[in-house]
Computed example of a mutant assay.
Amino acid sequence: MKKQIITAIFTVLAMSFATAQKKKDAQVSKLYQNYIAIKAALASDDAGKAAKSASEFVQTASAVKNNTIPVKNLTALKNEASGIAKTGNISAQREIFHHLSDDMYALSRQFSFSEKPVYLQYCPMAEASWLSNEEKIINPYYGSSMLTCGTVKSTIK
């Protein structure tokens, strides 16, 4: 009888933990979708759209519940996205995006962004990485001038 009660308690706790983790992953997944919108805007050389997408990223980050992402990490993400949103200079946006990408990659090691694979891609010319929801290289650091420059470094499942 004690064994059954203990098993039932552990099952309930495990299910509660799994549900809480899925909620955290869902919040972070929204950030990832905003990040992908910034990446797409930079790849299409659209500074205005990158700024708008970065503003949406900041709004999503501001809605993330406490203790989902460590405050230090969340603050860095918000600051970087705010920097992209505040400048109309695509070169400056791309430089900030480099840091945003590094921080999003760090986050990908703690959370699941998507049920589909996430690709870590690298541009040797920019010496910078980014995350993508597709294996095809669409370079946000050089846009139309070098759209397919880069390689897939790893796949995050």
Results as ranks from 00 to 15, higher is better:
residue 117 P to Q: 13
residue 98 H to F: 09
residue 19 T to F: 10
residue 110 Q to D: 12
residue 22 K to G: 13
residue 60 T to F: 02
residue 124 P to E: 08
residue 124 P to N: 06
residue 121 Q to T: 06
residue 100 L to W: 08
residue 65 K to I: 04
residue 83 G to S: 11
residue 91 S to A: 12
residue 84 I to K: 00
residue 40 A to F: 04
residue 52 K to N: 02
residue 112 S to K: 04
residue 97 F to C: 04
residue 60 T to Y: 05
residue 15 M to K: 09
residue 134 E to R: 08
residue 95 E to P: 15
residue 132 S to V: 07
residue 81 A to K: 01
residue 74 L to W: 04
residue 106 A to H: 06
residue 142 Y to T: 06
residue 134 E to A: 14
residue 126 A to Q: 10
residue 132 S to Q: 10
residue 106 A to I: 03
residue 28 V to A: 04
residue 74 L to F: 01
residue 107 L to G: 03
residue 23 K to E: 02
residue 77 L to A: 01
residue 140 P to N: 02
residue 137 I to G: 06
residue 109 R to T: 07
residue 27 Q to A: 06
residue 72 K to H: 11
residue 129 S to R: 02
residue 40 A to V: 11
residue 15 M to V: 05
residue 110 Q to S: 07
residue 129 S to V: 15
residue 32 Y to F: 04
residue 6 I to D: 14
residue 90 I to G: 02
residue 81 A to F: 03
residue 38 I to K: 01
residue 51 A to Q: 01
residue 32 Y to L: 02
residue 97 F to D: 01
residue 135 E to A: 02
residue 91 S to Q: 13
residue 32 Y to S: 02
residue 8 A to F: 09
residue 18 A to L: 10
residue 39 K to G: 10
residue 26 A to Y: 15
residue 105 Y to D: 09
residue 91 S to M: 15
residue 137 I to R: 10
residue 80 E to R: 05
residue 30 K to D: 10
residue 38 I to G: 00
residue 15 M to I: 07
residue 86 K to P: 06
residue 13 L to D: 02
residue 80 E to A: 05
residue 115 E to K: 13
residue 26 A to D: 08
residue 58 V to T: 03
residue 99 H to S: 15
residue 66 N to P: 12
residue 112 S to Y: 01
residue 143 G to N: 09
residue 138 I to P: 03
residue 18 A to D: 15
residue 135 E to H: 14
residue 140 P to H: 03
residue 34 N to S: 14
residue 101 S to D: 05
residue 83 G to T: 07
residue 115 E to C: 10
residue 127 E to G: 05
residue 142 Y to I: 12
residue 32 Y to M: 01
residue 138 I to F: 13
residue 139 N to L: 09
residue 32 Y to P: 03
residue 12 V to W: 13
residue 96 I to A: 05
residue 35 Y to D: 00
residue 24 K to V: 06
residue 92 A to F: 06
residue 34 N to W: 06
residue 83 G to C: 11
residue 69 I to V: 10
residue 90 I to T: 09
residue 29 S to R: 13
residue 76 A to F: 11
residue 6 I to Q: 04
residue 36 I to Q: 09
residue 53 S to D: 00
residue 113 F to D: 00
residue 74 L to R: 03
residue 137 I to Q: 15
residue 47 A to C: 10
residue 58 V to W: 00
residue 66 N to F: 15
residue 38 I to T: 03
residue 19 T to M: 12
residue 83 G to W: 08
residue 93 Q to W: 01
residue 57 F to C: 00
residue 57 F to Q: 00
residue 75 T to H: 12
residue 31 L to Y: 01
residue 94 R to H: 04
residue 20 A to E: 09
residue 141 Y to I: 14
residue 7 T to F: 04
residue 118 V to G: 03
residue 115 E to L: 05
residue 26 A to L: 06
residue 96 I to R: 05
